[in-house]
Amino acid sequence: MIINSTELQNNFGKYLMLAAHEDIIITRNGTEIAKLTAIIEPLAEKINLTDMVYEKSSEYSYDGRRATFEEFLQLQRESEERYEYIDGEIYWLASPKTAHQYALTELFGIFYNFFQGKHCTPMVAPYDIELKRTPENINMVQPDIMIICDLEEKLNEDDYYKGVPSLVVEILSKSTRRKDLIKKLDLYMSCGVGEYWIVNPDNKEVTVYFFENQNFSKNATYKNNEAAQSYLFEGLSAEIGRIFRV
């Protein structure tokens, strides 16, 4: 990730956390001057890269340049496949495996029951969420689960939601791990999502990140006989043993 020195100064805590996942290159007046890197082995390096199947983004390189949002929308219209668009990169979404779908079903059931009769609404993928870093930098993602608290107010005339979910959940797989841990973590935090749950079927853990003012505030990881707890919604919890297959 490359940022300028002003951005680092204004959001040091955010980039200190992100440096645990990948190196942060700092520039001044367009020139690289420093690198923020983790002392411990970065999380991304702990992943067995030889076993990882990356999302098919290079297939849509558009003559070696990043795709525009309009080009992404055209691809989406012309294909029956599912895609996400993050910072100019297009990612093909592979069909999920059983462990992924088991965790998705169990967790959505917990959320659905909790929010019955409440103002917020749980939604499940595929469901496009449009997130804007700036008016020009538009991204389109499909979180596995979303908690939306302004659904009726943010529906456009074509019945598409144009707001920002309060809580999002991503269930890791080998093909999405790096994107979910790094790119989406930064995207959700930067665009106003309040809470981000990362569900890992491989090690049967759930990590909950709480964001305030588009920056890291709190986080916790739950495993074994524990129950993942929401910072944002009091009383919302999910027993780890229920989410994952034995």
Rank of each mutant, 00 (worst) to 15 (best):
D180F: 06
I148N: 05
E71C: 03
K174S: 15
I145L: 13
P122T: 14
T98M: 08
K204F: 01
G88S: 12
S237H: 11
N225G: 01
A94Q: 08
M1N: 13
L131F: 07
P126I: 10
I90A: 13
S5N: 07
Y54A: 11
V199E: 01
K174M: 15
F72H: 09
I47P: 05
E78F: 11
L181P: 01
I86P: 04
V193M: 03
L181V: 00
S217F: 04
K162T: 14
K179F: 08
K204T: 02
Q116E: 14
L49A: 13
A103N: 04
K56G: 09
E195S: 05
T105Y: 09
E81C: 00
V193A: 03
Q76C: 11
T121G: 00
L232M: 10
L75F: 08
F211S: 01
E45C: 11
S237D: 07
T134I: 11
E153C: 06
A99R: 14
Y160I: 11
W197E: 01
M146D: 14
D23M: 11
G192S: 08
Y15K: 06
K14H: 09
E32G: 08
E55K: 10
I33M: 14
K184M: 14
R133K: 15
N224K: 07
L185H: 11
I3S: 05
A44C: 10
I40M: 11
Y15F: 15
G194Y: 00
D150T: 07
I39T: 07
L73N: 12
Y15N: 09
S217I: 02
N48H: 02
L36G: 01
S58R: 15
N225K: 04
M17T: 08
L104G: 09
T27F: 02
Y62L: 11
K154V: 04
Y60M: 10
Q101S: 12
I26W: 07
N139C: 05
K183A: 15
G192H: 07
F111Q: 02
Y196C: 10
F114P: 01
F210K: 02
I147D: 02
S57D: 06
I147L: 10
A125Y: 15
F69G: 05
D159V: 07
I243R: 01
I198R: 01
Y83F: 15
G109Q: 05
F111S: 03
L181F: 05
Y231H: 06
T68P: 05
V199R: 00
Y231C: 00
F210M: 01
Y62P: 04
R65G: 04
A19C: 12
E239T: 04
H100C: 01
R65D: 07
P126N: 13
N29E: 12
H119M: 10
K46N: 14
Y196L: 11
I198V: 15
S237N: 12
W92G: 13
F244R: 01
M1R: 11
E78V: 10
I240P: 00
L104T: 06
N225Y: 00
E170R: 07
S5C: 02
Y83M: 07
W92C: 09
E22T: 10
C149P: 00
E80M: 11
E70I: 03
N156E: 06
A38V: 05
V164S: 06
L155T: 02
I2L: 08
L73S: 07
K132L: 13
E106D: 03
F210L: 02
Q76S: 14
